[in-house]
């Protein structure tokens, strides 16, 4: 039995998730949006590990490892796209991407 109550773990997780979400919605710089996405994925990992430790099951850590691979793949593709964007527009402003044509 763990000493940390699940409720407090979930509060921390939702706080981090909310911070990351505000970052994704409010920032215009695409690089900062990617960083905020990392924070959000991390927050979900906290929730999984906390739940796994409360019920003493390994499933939480398994899900965390899967989230880890997802984050790695997402960052690789995202940063490659940002490099393309920087080459084409010489800027990372997300508002430059509001047109599909071109």
């Amino acid at each position: 039995m763990t000493t940390i109550p699940l409720f407090h773990v979930l509060i921390l997780s939702s706080l981090l998730f909310a911070i990351g979400f505000v970052g994704v919605v409010a920032r215009k710089n695409t690089l900062f949006m990617l960083m905020s996405l990392e924070i959000m994925l991390n927050a979900v990992g906290v929730a999984f590990i906390g739940a796994g430790s409360v019920w003493q099951q390994a499933d939480g850590q398994v899900m965390f490892i899967l989230i880890l691979t997802l984050a790695a793949a997402e960052v690789a593709v995202g940063l490659a796209l940002l490099i393309r964007m920087q080459k084409k527009y010489h800027s990372l402003d997300i508002d430059l991407l509001n047109q599909m044509k071109g």
Partner: peptide
Amino acid sequence: VCFYLMGAPFA
């Protein structure tokens, strides 16, 4: 550090 304190040193 939070993970470590929650009993998941591997994570």
